[in-house]
Design a protein around this nucleic acid. Structure first.
Lengths: 138, 138
DNA sequence: TTCTCATCTGAACGTTTGCGCAGATGAAAG
DNA sequence: CTTTCATCTGCGCAAACGTTCAGATGAGAA
């Protein structure tokens, strides 16, 4: 069945591939496009250091107002507000308004899990820490 | 101790804050800058749909060559190669070369965990799916 | 040797993104 | 009413990003 020898096969559209069987299997197991996009969205949101710091602060602090988040993260209140708007739009955080202030908290248990998994690695193990990695000779 | 009343306090540098005690606690619990940056790096890497698809494909397929990854993900081989270079530089994937081809696989158990947590949410639950969210009226 | 072919890479282009700025909003205080 | 103050937001720009294109690399085949 498999054509692992020398000749590559083509699918209907002319895409070159080597192990057509595995390609089909993997493609079948692949989550649908919207799920991938949604997950990428959240991960991308957490992929910015400013926003990640905010979210981690909320993981620790429970419910924190904008100015305190600015103080913790070391960014301007404007930058924090912009960041929170994005996080809010994607349902990563929720806001509660009281008096003149806005208190933010994590809205999603799933994000909490992602953060736990993420932090458990980087904080106690020696991560590789690649600066601006170049060619990576193996 | 806490000054939750009306007046905001200032720290030494003139940063406005409301609950100075909590700010100090959260700041103390915050992972150090490099750890945050490293985690943000990985999350940001996974935050691109193209790269996420590649990594998910490797999660399913184990070891897949460049052209098959291109076939699975539906991108050009060049785009895939660029993406793989980034993932390689950050030790997310590893490469094994055989014959004329390059076989890629996941290099990091931690990334596998992140993916599992991420996918377990988006694939069986109804995620909110925000398109280009605007003001988000609560 | 030369030819073939899978993969890699630099440059360039168009798009997106993060943040500062300045003003807006809106609610509470005076 | 007006003033104060925490937060929000449109604009603008510089930096970062993802992709394509065209060519380079380098190992195997002939």
């Amino acid at each position: 069945m498999k054509r692992l020898s020398g000749v590559a096969s083509m699918d209907a559209c002319g895409v070159r591939m080597v192990d057509a069987e595995k390609v089909a299997a993997v493609r079948a197991a692949m989550p649908d496009d919207r799920d991938v996009a949604d997950l990428a969205d959240v991960l991308g949101l957490l992929g910015d250091p400013t926003r990640l710091r905010l979210v981690v602060a909320l993981l620790e602090g429970g419910e924190v107002c904008v100015c305190d988040l600015a103080a913790v993260s070391g960014h301007s209140e404007s930058a924090v507000s912009h960041a929170l708007r994005l996080l809010r739009a994607h349902r990563v955080v929720e806001v509660r308004r009281a008096h003149r202030m806005a208190y933010y908290r994590l809205a999603d248990a799933h994000v909490r899990m992602l953060l736990d998994v993420g932090l458990s690695h980087t904080s106690h193990a020696g991560v590789v820490h690649v600066e601006h990695a170049k060619t990576d000779r193996t």
